[in-house]
Amino acid sequence: MKKSYLGAMFLLSSGVLANPYKSELVDVSFQIQEGKETFQLVCQPKLTMGELPKNWVDACNDIGKKLLELAVESGVKVEPVDNAFGLAGDLAQKVSSDLPENVVPTQIISREFGG
């Protein structure tokens, strides 16, 4: 199956300079599978473990919730949740604390939304 990644920025006006969906810690984007009416959110840390705060997954969840709310405002049938990355985020948070300081954690992917 072909997957396409769409940046979260496509939903926002290009005139927005102070983007509340942007973080210096993480990038959050949409992952859409062709032929499906669902999507997932993907959170990719930008910094090494030594530079990330201990609660870096909170930034993923905060941005994820805002993107889900924006999707609802755009007419997508999805229920916004506080913890968009759910158990995957909880596990990533717990496991990443054991990583060396110079390692950048890999991406975490939410459950499917929409449909």
Rank of each mutant, 00 (worst) to 15 (best):
A92Y: 02
P53H: 14
E51D: 15
A59S: 14
E69H: 10
V42R: 08
A71L: 15
A92R: 01
L68P: 06
D82S: 13
G89D: 03
S74L: 10
D82N: 13
Q40A: 11
T48S: 03
E79W: 05
I63E: 03
W56A: 02
A92T: 02
F85Y: 12
D90M: 09
F85T: 05
L70H: 08
V81R: 04
V76D: 02
E51G: 00
W56R: 01
L91D: 08
N55D: 15
E73R: 15
K66Q: 14
Q40V: 08
V76L: 12
E73T: 12
K66M: 14
I63L: 10
E79T: 15
A71T: 13
S74C: 07
E79H: 09
V76C: 06
E51A: 10
V57S: 01
W56P: 00
L52A: 00
W56C: 01
D58L: 11
G50M: 12
G50H: 10
F85D: 03
V42F: 04
E69K: 13
L52V: 01
K65N: 09
L41H: 04
E69F: 09
C60A: 14
L68R: 08
L67F: 06
V72P: 10
C43W: 01
G50A: 14
A88Q: 11
L41I: 11
L67I: 07
V57W: 01
E69A: 11
V42S: 05
L41Y: 04
P53M: 12
N55F: 07
K46E: 04
Q40K: 14
L87V: 15
N83L: 08
K54L: 14
K77P: 03
C43E: 03
E51Y: 00
L68K: 07
K54T: 15
G89W: 01
L70S: 11
G89K: 01
M49C: 14
K46H: 08
K54F: 13
L67V: 08
G64M: 06
P53Y: 14
L68G: 06
K77I: 13
D90G: 11
G89C: 05
A92K: 01
E79A: 14
P80N: 09
K54Y: 11
V76H: 04
T48G: 00
L91Y: 09
D62W: 02
L52F: 00
V72T: 13
A92D: 02
G64F: 05
D58G: 04
L68Y: 10
A84F: 10
D62C: 03
L70Q: 11
D62M: 05
N83Q: 12
S74G: 02
C60L: 06
L41F: 07
K66S: 09
L47G: 00
V72C: 10
Q44Y: 04
L67D: 06
D90E: 15
E51K: 07
L52T: 00
E79K: 15
C43M: 09
A88H: 08
V78P: 04
K77S: 14
